[in-house]
Nucleic acid binder design. Sequence first.
RNA 1: GCGGGCGUGGUGGAACUGGUAGACACGCCAGAUUUAGGUUCUGGUGGCUUCGGCCGUGGGGGUUCAACUCCCUCCGCCCGCACCA
Length: 869
Amino acid sequence: MTIERYDAPAREKHWQAVWEARGVFRADENESRPKYYVLEMFPYPSGRIHMGHVRNYTMGDVVARFMRARGFNVLHPMGWDAFGLPAENAAIERGVHPAQWTYDNIATMRDQLKSMGLSLDWSRELATCDVDYYEQQQKLFLDMLAAGLVDRKTRKVNWDPVDHTVLANEQVIDGRGWRSGALVEQREQPEWVFKITAFADDLLEGLGTLDRWPDKVRLMQANWIGKSEGLLIRFDVAAATAPSGHDVITVFTTRPDTLFGASFVAIAPDHPLAKAIAAKNEDAARFIAECQRGGTTAAELETQEKKGFDTSVRVKHPVIEGAALPVYIANFILMEYGTGAIFGCPAHDQRDLEFARAYGLPVIPVVLPPGADPATFAIGDEAYTGDGTMINSSFLNGLTVAEAKEAMAQHLTAQTLKGEPVAARQTQYRLRDWGISRQRYWGCPIPMIHCEVCGIVPVPAKDLPVTLPEDVSFDVPGNPLDHHPTWKHVACPQCGAPARRETDTMDTFVDSSWYFARFCSPRAEEPTDRGAVGYWLPVDQYIGGVEHAILHLLYARFFTRAMHKTGHVAIDEPFKSLFAQGMLTHATYKDEAGKWVFPADVVFENGKTRHRETGAAITVGPIESMSKSKKNVVDPDDIIARYGADTARWFILSDTPPERDIEWSAAGVDGAHRFLQRAWRLVNEAAAKGAPAGAPRPERFGADAEALRRSAHRSLTEVTAAFEKLRFNVAVAQIYELANALSQGLQTNENPEEDMRFALREAAEILARIAAPMVPHLAEESWAALGHQGLLAEAPWPEADPALLVDETVTIAVQVNGKRRDELTIARDAAKEDIEAAALKLENVVRAIGGRQIKKVVIVPQRIVNVVA
RNA sequence: GCGGGCGUGGUGGAACUGGUAGACACGCCAGAUUUAGGUUCUGGUGGCUUCGGCCGUGGGGGUUCAACUCCCUCCGCCCGCACCA
């Protein structure tokens, strides 16, 4: 019998058209069925899809198709994270309008995604640069403003000198802009901020409820929020040593227990006191200037030596009568954290120790490590930061560190200085408010107006949306909105006087902070429809790259809380379950000139690599993450056109666990394609040899037929479990096993009996159905080949027969002294005594015991026998 | 420096709450069929072996009848954060 090869590219188009015509993947709110919202991080429309997208959307699609088959009402939408700098760069480089460039890319990428056969509800498609979308975002902004969650602050910002814009802290990586890679500078500039710090504790607490998030991501967020509990301590400034108005210095500390070991106080170069001193003291001013000059970039800050300037201001020691501490301006104190001032305890803090050694300050140990001799214990080059017993600390002596912290806190909060308590308990966060101002054109305009009379006034709701002007020029560097001749000139909505529009646009991370909510009702007149978000949210399964572990995911969690507070949703956590997928890697290739070469241009011959066209020698470099710059990329279009989408999907799900990096290989793709062709042959052969669709189940099955049925039902169970845990590679392996079993059944039965005919058909059907979420086109084609009229995409998930999952006999290993010597096949429910008797009779076991006394026989029914002799 | 993760054949990886390590696949070897070839099918494939066995999950130690799995320790690689008071 000859079976036509499966022509994937042609058949895939056919089934995609059938699904679309029937609207199989359209989702509607339907209270009668449990909902399931599966979402993959939406793409930035950069031009073409890459293999990372293929992996991401394939995994999401498997979940969507699987859950749909299991009876859930599945929402699986797609959209475009469409604002951002590359569109403006294209405009600058090629003279294309950003909108044109973006929407062209979207059209290309939409076609590409459609060729993958994803079960998406395209009727909900949105792009964040659609006026309809950003109008709703402007409404959210105004609601957040009214709720006190928006602020305008002048503060030190991260300035990217290449992209000419401000960056959030989260967007600065190793002192460089996350996109441009330029060294980031510090500038003072007014900007709009979202008060994410208002939710700092809530965002931290909420992590505890996210039990279906990777621990790694939760930990990274917890560290980013950086909660620390401590004490604010007010130091009394000795009269006449400081400028007026600075009679108290407040420091923040998490180690009040070490106060008796304090030998100095240090303040940040931009601390108000430092500035006041500098106004009268040239040396101080010079020192501060030096700090700021040396430390404009975060990268430089990290390598700097500890430097200080003795201000000759003195403060009274709060707990040592008559003692005074010098006040330094120090380069390692940050104004942004705590109060911008510390007390230094060199013995128990490494930075303080380095500083003290440099300036000859005393080093007084106050914590004695366990087991150390108090008479000889001294601090060398390393501060001691561990636990221990308090010494040299008056009323704290003998206490543990924890006890001493509490005792000191109680002591100081009970004292007063100038009418107020000396100390107050304080919780400090590392998290800073989210600066969203960007001096760019291609983003959501911030709906605010600057009026010289009324101040800063929000755009009234009736005047929304504030749309981007289309006629912009990118000839001059800087913000095109600011250069536009008319756009920013408006009348003040309050007094009518000539006023100026805000020309900053929002960080594009704002756009992606709520799109999952908009997908619930993408055409609603308001940002959300309460019924729709009430039904669909939260997202049940969110899938994307780890690179968003902090940025996007933290912002989205904040935004959900802000939307809750402003009445747009009723939940706090947007993503119930999160899956962080690994990246795609590929070997790198270089030609003789050291230029990168695409894998598609490399051929292998007789163990040599050379260029497909020029024949020049090619050097194979290390396997690295796929990136355009290194050209170690494979175009999904090429793969899909040649092998079909199912092959790409199957390959990318096989072998490597989804959370790990996967290495793309041509051999692997060929292997995947071969298997799909084989599966197609097996199904067709089974359709020909097996029972017809809907044939009744025979009463009795012979041993072979029974074995095949068991194999099929076991695979069904295993694959179901694997999908539930997103272990796609394990599901693939199980499907291979079933294919092997079916292949055996077909080969050994030239003219099968009725029972085997039933088993062959059943196995082929199960094979097609459990593979369907991963290779939906081939499965659909197989389903039809097996004689079914309806669509597999609409068929429910099959159920395994429990009777076929338990074997009557089991094979268990028999060990002697923990070493496997033989195995034993015995009735599943055999009594322990029978198992023991049978095991001790085995020839290999008798020999291994070698006549020794049997001390003990461990029997775990259905698992193992271990004879101890 | 701090925090976290990982380490299993030539390769990707499997192994449920400790119970036959290496499922499944790639690669490789041999054979069959066919072809001009990619194809398809069958068998083999952790290492060593005196063919009885012995050794094997990064190294060393421990707990246990039994350890890839639990504990201690060391080594290597990867990721995140980084003057956070």
